[in-house]
Design a protein around this nucleic acid. Structure first.
Lengths: 262, 262
DNA sequence: GCAAAAGTGTTCTCTATACACCCATGG
DNA sequence: CCATGGGTGTATAGAGAACACTTTTGC
């Protein structure tokens, strides 16, 4: 296990571009709540976004893809770049507070690969990517520096490293503004879902309630839904229809932007 | 003059972050056409976006600000990051074709500062910024590697270095999608303008004609225009009113996004 | 007077919104 | 029976699109 860490840090220093990183905001939707995938640092109570570095022989987009796959097991999901964070204060881990908080991990590595600690504590410019995934299809997996990898509700984010909180906020703003051009429905929901699921998803992103009956009619009029048999929920009320997307039509419309006002 | 070039290249290598650059798409509007500010390489018939590097002690945003000011003389105009280009093929100048085309410049520098040529021909990741400026207030100024700095019509862009054409296309797409959230009117037009000017601006960005009378009414209803005396154009027709923006109201609405459909 | 562009008006359609109403389900 | 949430209907206000009409200007 120790050898793994040494190999990993050596590889990073030798094969990756210095001073440039990628952070992924991997977003899911479960129990009517938006969630984000986070990693917890070994030994310390501090969390961070799944991130990584760009190999010298790899496109930045490929690197993001690779990082996403390593943390979730997922290939070919919606993944897009949204912003690059370049504040001069952005040095990975080298701020006083950070150093103190991550002392244990860095000390462990320092004993094994001093070069890596120098490499990783320099100033970094990070490019943020966001992915929209179906939580139920993911198999979260921590990286070499973390011991936990979990879905956290957006309304209840733990203490984050550096500016990672800011990065998440930026994504949420991006989601809201670009909503009409993003395949949120098809990416975040399970194959079959109810109109209520979809509405709650929109409400979570827009952070405001929408009128139930109008939402349903507006959505259905878009014409990319397939209606299935009803689902008996066991609740004391009428059972809702299940829907799925006509993927062709859905993607076509999302490309152009569904001209919606909320 | 030679000493300047040596000083410049030495400074860049010593004081800037390696492998990271900034390219600015500086956009203006004149004679009812969108224009972009471009530089022409010394000795060669190849053009490029105004760009530069990030000093080790400077935020990325500050660097973009500095580059913009050096090329246009402008401070505090609308300037925003829009995308980061990280293809592995993105090495500044080191592709065969590029090397051939830029032979003269590189040879000149090579004789004076070999280190710089190595530094600048490595793989670069560049972050694109776009600025919206009033052309009439700019004083274009070439950089150390170029001998011309000019406004070029978007419909007639000369041969560009590397992926700079792609970068410009990406900006235009961004403008279209984000239109309701961008202060295009106040940034690109002179202080006083006619409704036709504004309409032509929107049409240039959206690349489609808009209905004159409806455009006028919709715009005026937004409530951030100040109407001034009429302007006699000398043409054989009714003189149009001049307008300016109520900056407070304009910026407020742009923040939220003017809920427009075109 | 005439052509051309500006400004305003009118009509029709479509959308958004609010809310009423009935339906299905389990207790 | 009732309470709860689902699905559909309807009425009203406002936005968008097309186009008619009038006004102003220089020739």
């Amino acid at each position: 296990m120790d050898q793994n860490l040494i190999d990993f840090t050596t590889q990073v220093v030798d094969e990756c571009l210095p001073g440039k990183s990628i952070d992924c905001v991997i977003i899911g939707f479960e129990k009517q709540q938006l969630k984000v995938l986070l990693l917890k640092w070994k030994y310390e109570d501090i969390w961070c976004l799944p991130g990584g570095f760009i190999r010298k022989d790899e496109d930045m987009d490929q690197a993001a893809q690779r990082i996403l796959e390593m943390r979730t097991g997922l290939k070919s999901v919606y993944l897009n770049q949204f912003y690059t964070f370049g504040s001069k204060k952005r040095s990975r881990l080298n701020e006083e507070v950070q150093l103190t908080r991550m002392r244990h991990v860095l000390e462990e590595i320092h004993g094994k690969n001093e070069k890596f600690v120098t490499w990783i504590t320099q100033r970094f410019i990070t490019t943020g990517y966001f992915a929209l995934v179906d939580i139920r299809k993911t198999a979260p997996h921590p990286d070499m520096l973390s011991d936990r990898c979990e879905w956290k509700s957006l309304s209840n984010i733990p203490g984050l490293m550096m500016d990672h909180k800011e990065i998440i906020l930026k994504v949420m703003e991006h989601l809201r503004v670009q909503l009409n051009y993003l395949p949120i429905g098809i990416s975040l929901l399970p194959q079959k879902f109810t109109m209520q699921d979809l509405q709650k998803l929109y409400e979570a992103i827009l952070k405001k309630p929408l009128e139930r009956s109008n939402f349903q009619r507006k959505m259905l009029k878009l014409g990319f839904f397939i209606r299935h048999e009803k689902q008996l929920t066991g609740a004391a009320n009428k059972a809702p229809y299940l829907y799925s997307f006509d993927e062709m039509k859905y993607n076509e419309l999302i490309e152009k932007g569904i001209g919606f006002r909320y």
